[in-house]
C-alpha cells in the first residue's frame, strides 16, 4: 500500500465533448503515410444492457508499434521506435454507438521472460453512468498466437470471443469489428487492472 491517498474515480458525465474531444484531442487516425506496419481499421459499437447504443461514450486505445515496442520510457528493449507512431487513440461514439480507428496491427509484446503475448490493443471506455471506466483488450481473429496468449488463457473459454475482433475485408482493406457490450448477453470481458 502506498502512503498517499488515491483519488477516487467519478463518471465522465455527458458534457465532456468540448474538452476531451476538441479537434486537436481526438485521435482516430494513429498513423501517418510513412508509419510502418499493416494498415487496419477497427470499427465497433458500444452497447448497454438493453443492447441499445451508448451514444455518449469516449473510447481510448493504447498499443505497441509494428515491432511490438511501446513508446514509453519503461520499454527499453532494443526494438525500433517508429517516430511517426505514438500508439494512443481517443474518440467518441456517434448516435449509433459507433467508433472507429485507423491504425496498424501491433507486434508481439512480452508477457514475462518466458512468454509472449499475442498482438492486442488495450481499450478503455468512459461514459455517463460509468462511475469508473472499463478496461478491455482487442485481439485479432486471424492471429494464431491467440491460442497461447497468457491473458486469453485466463479468460473463461465461453467468454473469450468477446475479446476477439472479427476480420472483414471491405473494399480491399482490412476491418476488424469489435463491439463492446457493457452489460448482459455477450457482456465483454473487462479487466481489473
Amino acid at each position: 500500500m502506498g502512503k498517499a491517498p488515491v483519488t477516487p474515480t467519478q463518471t465522465v458525465g455527458p458534457f465532456f465533448h468540448p474538452c476531451l474531444l476538441r479537434p486537436d484531442a481526438v485521435i482516430t487516425t494513429l498513423i501517418k503515410p510513412e508509419t510502418e506496419g499493416t494498415r487496419i481499421r477497427i470499427e465497433g459499437r458500444v452497447l448497454d444492457g438493453d443492447g441499445l447504443p451508448v451514444d455518449d461514450a469516449m473510447v481510448e486505445i493504447w498499443q505497441a508499434n509494428h515491432y511490438g515496442r511501446y513508446r514509453h520510457p519503461l520499454d527499453q528493449r532494443p526494438l525500433p521506435l517508429d517516430p511517426t507512431f505514438i500508439g494512443f487513440g481517443r474518440t467518441g461514439t456517434d448516435e449509433e454507438g459507433r467508433y472507429w480507428f485507423e491504425t496498424i496491427k501491433p507486434g508481439v509484446v512480452p508477457f514475462d521472460d518466458q512468454q509472449d503475448q499475442a498482438p492486442h490493443i488495450l481499450v478503455m471506455v468512459f461514459a455517463r453512468g460509468l462511475l469508473n471506466h472499463v478496461v478491455t483488450r482487442i485481439y485479432f481473429e486471424d492471429e494464431p498466437a491467440n491460442a497461447s496468449d497468457p491473458i486469453l488463457q485466463r479468460v473463461p473459454e465461453e467468454r473469450r470471443g468477446t475479446l476477439i475482433a472479427r476480420r472483414e475485408e471491405v473494399d480491399g482493406s482490412v476491418v476488424y469489428r469489435f463491439d463492446i457490450r457493457l452489460q448482459g448477453e455477450g457482456e465483454t470481458v473487462f479487466f481489473d487492472v
Binding site: 508477457f111 457493457l182 452489460q183 470481458v189
Partner: peptide, 14 residues
C-alpha cells in the same frame, strides 16, 4: 443499464 454484471477478470499487469 451500463454497469457490468459479471466479475472483472484479475490478470497480471504486463
Amino acid at each position: 443499464k451500463r454497469s457490468p454484471h459479471l466479475p472483472l477478470l484479475e490478470v497480471p499487469l504486463t
